[in-house]
Computed example of a mutant assay.
Amino acid sequence: MDLEMVDVDLRSATRSLPRTDPSKAGMRRAAAVALKVMPVPRARGVRVRTSREGGARVRVYRPPVQRTDAALLWVHGGGLVIGHPRQDERLASGTAAALGMTVVSAHYRLAPEHPFPAALDDIRAAWDWVQRHAAELGVDPARIVIGGESAGGGLAASVVQLLHDAGERPLGQWLFCPMLDDRTAARTELDAIDHLVWNNVANRFGWTSYLGQAPGASVVPPYAVAARRTELTGLPPAWICVGDIELFHDEDVDYARRLEQAGVPVTLDVTAGTPHGFENWAADTAPARMLVTRAQAWLGELAGVEPGV
Rank of each mutant, 00 (worst) to 15 (best):
P287L: 03
T293Q: 14
V103Q: 03
R183S: 13
D21L: 04
V58F: 04
S158T: 09
A56G: 11
A106C: 08
T271Y: 00
A142L: 02
L17H: 10
A156L: 01
M179V: 02
V33I: 14
M1W: 01
E279C: 04
G234F: 04
A224Q: 06
R132Q: 12
L268D: 10
A166M: 12
R109K: 00
W129M: 02
A192Q: 11
Y255I: 10
M101Y: 04
P85T: 12
V242M: 07
T233G: 13
A238L: 05
R47S: 14
A288H: 12
A238N: 02
D252G: 14
K36M: 12
G304V: 02
V270W: 06
V37C: 09
Y210A: 08
E4L: 14
D244C: 10
E231P: 01
G206Y: 09
S93Q: 11
V46Y: 06
N199I: 00
H133R: 15
G212W: 09
D194A: 14
T271W: 09
P178C: 08
E189Y: 08
L171W: 03
R187E: 15
R15E: 11
R204G: 02
W239V: 07
A282H: 10
G152C: 01
E113F: 00
A56W: 00
L10Q: 11
C177R: 05
P112L: 03
A202W: 02
Q173T: 04
Q296I: 09
S218K: 13
G83Y: 07
D244T: 12
I82N: 01
H76P: 09
G243V: 03
P115G: 00
A224W: 02
W198K: 01
L171H: 00
W298G: 01
